[in-house]
Design a protein around this nucleic acid. Structure first.
Lengths: 221, 221
DNA sequence: CGCCCCATTGAATAAACTCAAGTCCCGTGG
DNA sequence: CCACGGGACTTGAGTTTATTCAATGGGGCG
């Protein structure tokens, strides 16, 4: 289950402390346990007790939910520096897996409560609020956007987090499809369409550049 | 904007304190301001500052979000006893309107903080967690369910809250459609289909009975 | 270099949407 | 109490969008 990490990668990108408050970084790094997961490893499972808090150090994570007949819905993607695993109930409704080789900091909620003097509670609270905001955005994407707008929204979202011209897509097409409520083929067609219309340009399957930001923004509605 | 309430209605159903902790009821009732809204009245608007907490006394409320071209997504419905209006950001992303004639208790967050001695924070925290849970459920409904399953899920959800055989549908077909990411015609067709297959039975447009709970449950996946 | 997996492309199908007409519920007024 | 009118809902036919199924293409790792 637990695999070797590609920790070397974390040397290149700018320090995540640029985006997230220093405290958050420090606290999790100080009291958290570093663990590595290989591509598609499960980090936690559906119906597991939700007592741990996680932070992505490198790589990316998806949460997902499986229906009895195999249909899958991806809840969200988590990137470098982001907290995940805080679910409202006692048990996880979603499972979490590593999208790519990933390193994660893990903190036991009950333990951390004392060790952090309540500071962790604040971090978790903030992350939970962001969580709700993103879920609401996701609802809009799923409920009222066309396939093209859905794909554009996801690309825009990822591009907005990137500090580089060239944007890395950590997830494969199936993950994108399951996040957007589409099939893999439709995602592929829309990506082609966006590239043909010179909105984005792909250099390989998992790396693209935004060529026309305004057009992309319009497509996200 | 502010209309007379149908307060008489509140004589019939069992006291909401059956479902919600007495404290919650008491606190909101003690420090809240009672306000009535007519059908389709706006309770708060998109981009308004989110400093107020609301509780439904009678009637029902929907939160919704409008896209620039008029497409609408309903975020959720709130029924008797439920809290709403707690959004993560400073400003509301959704607006809230009365689905039917509705009475609401309103509490100013900043004021309530002192008046309740922190108790309100707990209530809001709990409600926010439920909020996230429901948003996650909504994501699954929107992303991976068929039209029939979507409608079945909504009916089941509403039926589960009801204490009676006969279930009241507070919202119209358009609201259901905008919640489920469907058109009004598709909702109508699915309702007909569910009725023809003897899963539910409608007595008028806004009232139904579950005739085959197991079948309905299966359809919700 | 070659193989395998993932992604793309194409054609046919199915699901949900659009547009249009008809029906029913319900409140209003006679 | 019943007739009436209007808005909400239902139904139908044709269209669009996204899916399904199948075949082809290409990138990256051994």
């Amino acid at each position: 289950m637990i695999a070797m990490s590609t920790r070397a990668r974390s040397a290149n990108p700018p320090s995540p402390s640029v985006i997230y408050p220093r405290d958050e970084q420090d606290l999790m790094a100080r009291i958290g346990t570093r663990t590595s997961f290989a591509r598609d490893d499960e980090i936690y499972g559906q119906a597991e007790v939700a007592d741990l808090i996680y932070q992505v150090v490198s790589g990316a994570v998806r949460t997902s939910r499986l229906m009895s007949d195999g249909r899958r819905q991806v809840g969200d993607f988590y990137y470098q520096g982001e907290l995940f695993g805080m679910e409202p109930g006692q048990e996880h409704v979603f499972s979490a897996e590593a999208v790519a080789d990933t390193v994660v900091l893990i903190v036991k909620r009950s333990v951390a409560h004392e060790a952090s003097g309540g500071m962790l509670e604040q971090l978790v609270g903030g992350a939970a609020r962001r969580e709700l905001q993103r879920a609401h955005e996701h609802v809009l994407i799923l409920g009222r956007k066309t396939a093209c707008e859905k794909v554009a929204s996801l690309l825009m979202n990822i591009a907005d987090r990137s500090h580089y011209e060239s944007v890395e897509l950590p997830m494969g097409r199936q993950d994108m499809a399951d996040y957007l409520g589409l099939t893999i083929e439709t995602v592929s067609r829309m990506l082609t369409q966006l590239q043909v219309s010179a909105v984005v340009e792909f250099a390989g399957l998992r790396s693209f550049q935004v060529k026309n930001r305004q057009a992309l923004s319009l497509l996200t509605q």
